[in-house]
Design a protein around this nucleic acid. Sequence first.
RNA 1: GGACCGGUAGUUCAGCCGGUUAGAACGCUGGCCUGUCAAGCCAGAGGUCGCGAGUUCGAGCCUCGUCCGGUCCGCCA
Length: 623
Amino acid sequence: MYKILNTVEEDAAQKRDDVYAGKSYSEKEKNREMHCYRSHTCGELRKGNVGEFVRLSGWIHNRRDHGGVLFIDLRDHYGITQVVIYPDRMFQKTIAHLAKETVIRFDGMLANRSDENINSKLPTGEVEVVAESYDILGAAELVPFSIFPEDPAPEDMRLEYRFLDLRRGKLHENILLRSKIIAYMRRAMTDMGFNEFQTPILTSSSPEGARDFLVPSRLHPGKFYALPQAPQQFKQLLMIAGFDRYFQIAPCFRDEDARADRSPGEFYQLDIEMSFVTQEDVFEAVEKLLEGLFNEFTEWKFDKAPFKRIPYREAMLKYGTDKPDLRIPVEIQDVSQNFLKSGFKIFADTVSGGGVARAIAVRGIAGKPRSFFDGMVEFAQSIGSQGLAYLVWNEGNVKGPIAKFLDEQSMTDLTKKLDAKTGDVVFFVCNDEAKANKIAGEIRVKLGKDLDMIEQNAYRFCWITDFPMFEYNEELRKIDFSHNPFSMPQGGMEALTQKDPLEIYAYQYDIVCNGIELSSGAIRNHRPDIMYKAFEIAGYSREQVDEKFGAMIKALSFGAPPHGGIAPGVDRIIMLLANEPNLREVTAFPMNQRAQDLMMNAPCEVTEKQLRELHIRSTEIKA
RNA sequence: GGACCGGUAGUUCAGCCGGUUAGAACGCUGGCCUGUCAAGCCAGAGGUCGCGAGUUCGAGCCUCGUCCGGUCCGCCA
């Protein structure tokens, strides 16, 4: 191995050696002629450098004008160094009136600070540069929001002046963390024997899935490229091509509305595909990656491999969602049978009509004030529940709005089933299964937050497994794929021909951390015969399948290895590790929620000429 | 497409029951100050209260509409 490039520190050291080597303070005049912007970075100088004649360049971070002495905090990527300008310098007044964020170069001697003037908050806080001369390298206008101190600023302004926002400590660190995490991912994947590939950005529109971003073709009037929603088909083709283990930090494009944890338009996945693997092989690879990653980048507690596996149906029952936040130590229980026999008519009728009753038990909160319970009822109503029943286990009796409807036997059974003890409170939700899951799940999370039950400083992972292959579409009154039609059904062809379709699971899985879905993945269906059969169950003819997915089927027909993969969301992982609630805090140049880049002014109108070349006419009338 | 929350000085916010000339802090400008490090002190400038209509003797405050931002639902194979 040989070295191609020096680090910044090495470069600076080199220049120092070249320019300053052996030179004393008396030679400073000569040094002023040197042709470089800095001898050191602003984070570098220490006691050992005292007495050296140094040159620093950076931004005016802050200044403190004492009339006599003037202090400038000079900032660059590497840190902050105090520059002091004494009144005998003619330029002191000029510097005192420069706008913050001016880019400036100072030359001067590095001096020791006296003990009482040491700033322990700065790594460079034991020294300061005594300015001899300066050069303004980049003038600055008054900034629209404060870089220092790092006060809150309106987000649309932060986006419009992103280059300023990125100077601020927290965001600067987050983006740096992003760089390090991605570098780690590349290293770890390569070490595990994966090869990185690039796949096309201009590709063809896929009929399934999210809304595509379309790019009009100049050479083929009326035809369009689509930006990839994910390199799904390409990575499978690479497996069929025999490359065995693929990964890519893959840009993905989906024209769907944004959320706090979902960027509008574009995002990155650590896209992974492996040949000759089972579901467990994929889990093992991802667990190894994530364990290493979290080990490297967090001080918090996190689950070690193997992560908990939770079948989809169990997750929906216990947590009311397929992306459970396991930091909340509460599980939902099914109590349908208890209410079926009970005297509580509303619940009994719902259950006998095919609905379910769910219980959320919280220990030791019987003493909560009435307003707490009213608040919970109100919350339940706001998310679409008729109301919210609850029982409170007090010393010797059970109270609550529904207590009077339950006979002694029902109450005894319920107490036993829920293992309810004095001081416990149980909330009840009764509805059709889908609604009951959703409402109970949200109440579980709300209780976790309001009662401060969410485990702090911890990352809790789980795999959600055994997603149903098919589901019944009430609207179209037919069987549909519930998620991905290209996943391998568990049991293969035999299951498709023998079992009730709604009982078939797919080799499909999600990985979830702290209630955030990091990724979906699957063992793919690599057999055309099983593919045709699966589509047949969902009501597609062989011809329809050929028309829509012909290219993929063709590729699978020439000797395809069993393969599978996953694609953890890079942005979301960074968001978790940076402990940020929003993707924009870990993205250098994000769009706003309405998919606009406020700095670059995208999307924007284009010229008539451009449109003509692309054979496009806009239906929007220009102002 | 829908729901909720928000919009007052460059920024962060306060503004009581609808009642005099809309306040504070930071920033900015000027001045004072030789050791600060979120420097300090004094003075000053800075406002179409998002926009439009309505109710009222009177609207930052109430009503309706509208625009903008965020969060969520829909959507995200």
